[in-house]
Nucleic acid binder design. Sequence first.
DNA 1: TCCGGCAGATTGTGATCACATTGTCACGAA
DNA 2: TTCGTGACAATGTGATCACAATCTGCCGGA
Lengths: 229, 229
Amino acid sequence: MSAALNPAERGCGATLQEQAYQSLRTAIMCGRFVPGHALTIRGIAEMLGTSLMPAREALRRLVAERALELLPNRRVSVPKMTPARLEELAAARLALEPLAAVRALPAIDTECLTQLQRIDAEIDAALAAGEVERYLLKNQAFHLTLYRAGHSQVLIPLIESLWLQFGPFMRMMLGRIGASYVLDRHVEALDAITRRDALALRLAIEGDIRDGMGSIGQEELLRLYRAGS
Amino acid sequence: MSAALNPAERGCGATLQEQAYQSLRTAIMCGRFVPGHALTIRGIAEMLGTSLMPAREALRRLVAERALELLPNRRVSVPKMTPARLEELAAARLALEPLAAVRALPAIDTECLTQLQRIDAEIDAALAAGEVERYLLKNQAFHLTLYRAGHSQVLIPLIESLWLQFGPFMRMMLGRIGASYVLDRHVEALDAITRRDALALRLAIEGDIRDGMGSIGQEELLRLYRAGS
DNA sequence: TCCGGCAGATTGTGATCACATTGTCACGAA
DNA sequence: TTCGTGACAATGTGATCACAATCTGCCGGA
């Protein structure tokens, strides 16, 4: 676990607690922490080479954002995924992300669109190369770049919280079903954006979420759940 | 501002930072902090009679939950409401709360229903007595009791974050339009629950949100915005 | 009158330490 | 062997302090 954090991912201009937060956040989003694993303040501090304070603040912030879990023992751990929680996450994503996408649609200019196309190309490249971690980061970048175009101050943080909760599990999922199976719904979204078709964009985002969250059958989900607990 | 916090609202069994968080959270939800007001760590610590640490943790947690705002100066302040943000909050509430209500509907037993009816009676009493703060707390209790019946681990925190963001502004709104104007959509919801009518429940919650968020006309909203800034 | 700059006060950040609670593991009795 | 029980280690919480950045108010010059 000591190699879980890449020092290069730590920012340099912000405070130490911000750097610690970004490091942990990226690690969580990439699924580098196995669900159920306990994270200690001193362990994180040593891992990042800081004192207790930045590690403590970063951990508590991630707990507040529901990326980490605060056990009754006051210890912090990576939450385990349950079938009920996964289903809830899918429902929440379906409620928020198509809404954010449609609201952002009028604000997407050509510059933003080309950026989205570039990210999509990187996604395809990552998939072709089998680079799971890069795929996860770029897939997240695609969605958040799209939603952020609407400059939502409210929806974006909610969606980011959902992705933080779903991130660790997506890595497990991809490892099981294989990254090659992932099909690219993003081209449909890009096509809908160029046509300024709100309904098509909504359907594309919905389809992408359903593909991502529902590609595992219920039986496999239960098996993962039992194996995880 | 020193009388903003009621010591009786501070819990006794939890950690100091948890007590500080609950105190601040209640104060924010009741709108006791005016938007734009700056909150300092030392000020909160002195207000609560603790050292810097619990105040710091509570403030940062509320920032993470979007109840408070972190200015570029690294100072914490109560966010000002803008027309765009209010509209976004309404959209997010409309996306999440009817969903949470419908999902909770099958799990609402008679005990929960009677509790909801009791809370609704308290809401009416608070409205009749003109007790704004009690109305705000009980109105929040009604919604969250309803949603919590579904034992959502994902939707509830998202909705709580939205209420934390909307709370300070609701107090201002009620002060302007007068509490007597508020009409009670909760009876429709209770009726839908007893009939196990999911669609009617969805419509009742949607109506309640629209009444609450839209009762101010756009012109008054703009006036408030300009006055606030 | 107005604007720039300087000194003091205020504030957030980070580090370090003390302490109570909890977890861990070996030892010994049933 | 198995289950308590004790001591030791590990951990979170909270307090206090140092320091750099920021804010505030005053003064002097244009």
